[in-house]
Write a protein that binds this DNA or RNA. Structure first.
Lengths: 341, 341
DNA sequence: GTGAAAGCGCTAACAA
DNA sequence: TTGTTAGCGCTTTCAC
């Protein structure tokens, strides 16, 4: 920087002003400095800037596991949204490990100005932890809703309800749900609990009975577990003509188990998932789903986090909750077209 | 830090020594300092450390797109390998955009000590760019092999050859390959070129003829393109009893198109892919594949990058090439069992 | 084994 | 509009 200043015959401060696009710099000076920068190939040292300004220009994104397609696609969208604001993203995997998640929450990710956190183990019982957080934080999902923190999430209840209504609209009356939490409780705000709630609301609104035999617990949401639950459902002798998979990963396993058993989809059993991951387009039959608005979630979460960072943590605002718009994507597994739009 | 030093009645330097696990510190002093650290909740400022030491403790990983399952799984493994060494990972997406990739290569990712770079557009013709790189760099894949840089990659040729030999072992003699580069040239080191080379080697070694009608060009490697290529292959009237999909993403689309057309897999057509992404276990039928050794690639690449970082860029070493061990995973699409091991 | 002092590269505050 | 000064928090050097 000093070299640039000497070459352009200005002070450090003026170089700094040019680099930071400060408004009050004489155009001629700016050009001279810019030329010196180009000539010397000067690049600001971001550690120094970070030390001085207290900002690193890096945000953290903590997810359970990147190999789960939903989180990979979410990370993709978050990175894109961050890059559009000239921010970098450090990615952390908490591995669906409670201790690991508590550790992430306590300190954020190193070297970052703030954190987007999508936990998989922490829940309402950990709400108090949020009060001790001393860095800008935006939660993804509503697992720990009710604390002082901003949340960006999807319409879990309404989306699930719409999914089941979609099946009802096809004339299905015996609709199973696969993926309930083994310890389902209505007070909890886990995605599984909320989506089961939406499922029940849809049935009740349609005047249909709730049947415990149609609610299958699965944890974790992996395809093989979805397949196993479906095999058990088939073996149980319970009749059903539709399945609501609480996410697409389960749905893929469900399609697989139905196919093995010779069930025709959607003729015998219609299936709809949740998340609209890319892969659902290419199963056979292709998987209908609830598109939860991933891009909107990523964009909004990054925007909120940036606001929190720029306003400074010490300005306590009312916690905000944003739920992205969702929509039903009808594919072959509920009688829609399989070819891509 | 000063507060810690005052509380423990030592100097800054001693605190620094304790924090950095410096060996020559009196145990009693160490304990006293540690207690002060805990009491005050002191956490070192990493920007300051980075400024002073020239290291950030962050490495970069640049991939084309995280939403491609192969790269998501690779990133998962790289982050895990980095965390094991107490390093963070900044993830960049170059979006399969040549200019973007050149820009990444020119400067690395901001705030990082080094870069793991998996390009999708740069090729042998850009080899000279590697000479200008002034930061620790390890390339993933061999697209730009031949420069001064370390490479960690997979056995593209041998893996492909083994995949085709697997089909030959089932008695298949008319084996198609889907995913060749539209501009295939043997001199190129793109995965598509290398895998086609392995395909041809296997056929030639088995004394079978090469048939241009069996080599289908597809770009980019997306499931819908694999499905389209398969439909064209079926429509072309060329006979075939096996398909080698140059990656699993294509394979998923291929299975889909074969299913639509009423082809039985593996009875009529056996299919094998490449990459062994998680999803291949849950297609119907499940997809055989070449496991390219992703964990080994991630682990080795991080280890090499750390070596480069610690030795300092100015110690030029001979460029190294590491190819991970691969193996064939036989699933239902080639007559194996579909249930997970 | 520990301390004192210097300085990494930048920007905020103030001065001119 | 531009320059001067100070200092962010840490590690390094060298002295003790």
């Amino acid at each position: 920087m000093r070299d640039v200043a000497l070459l352009a015959r200005v002070s450090n401060k003026t170089v700094s002003n040019v680099v930071n696009a400060h408004p009050h710099v004489h155009p001629a000076t700016r050009a001279r400095v810019q030329q010196a920068i180009d000539e010397l190939g000067y690049r600001p040292n971001l550690s120094a800037r970070g030390l001085r300004s207290g900002r690193t220009g890096v945000i953290g994104l903590a997810v359970p596991e990147l190999r789960q397609p939903y989180f990979a696609e979410l990370a993709d969208a978050v990175i894109a949204a961050a890059e559009a604001r000239n921010l970098s993203v450090i990615l952390g995997q908490a591995g669906a490990d409670r201790a690991h998640e508590m550790n992430v929450l306590a300190h954020g990710l190193r070297q970052t100005d703030g954190l987007l956190f999508s936990p998989e183990r922490l829940g309402t019982e950990d709400r108090d932890l949020l009060h001790d957080v001393e860095y800008p934080l935006v939660m993804l999902g509503e697992r720990i809703f009710g604390g002082p923190t901003d949340h960006v999430t999807m319409h879990n209840v309404a989306g699930a309800r719409a999914a089941v209504e979609h099946l009802l609209g096809l004339g299905r009356r015996r609709i199973a749900v696969v993926g309930a939490h083994p310890d389902h409780r209505t007070g909890q705000l886990r995605p599984s609990d909320l989506r089961v709630q939406g499922y029940r609301e849809a049935l009740v609104a349609a005047g249909l009975p709730l049947d415990a035999g149609l609610e299958r617990a699965v944890a974790p949401w992996h395809p093989e577990n979805g397949a196993d639950a479906t095999r058990e459902l088939l073996a149980s002798g319970v009749e059903f003509d539709g399945i609501f998979a609480l996410n697409d990963t389960l749905g893929i396993g469900i399609l697989r188990a139905l196919g093995e058993a010779g069930c025709r989809v959607p003729d015998d059993v219609a299936v709809i998932g949740f998340d609209n991951i890319a892969n659902g387009q290419f199963t056979l039959p292709s998987l209908s789903s609830v598109d939860p608005g991933r891009e909107e979630i990523a964009e909004t979460a990054v925007a909120m986090l940036v606001e929190r960072i720029e306003s400074g943590t010490r300005t306590p605002q009312t916690p905000r909750l944003h739920k992205a718009a969702f929509h039903i994507v009808a594919r072959e597994s509920t009688g829609g077209s399989g070819r891509r739009a």
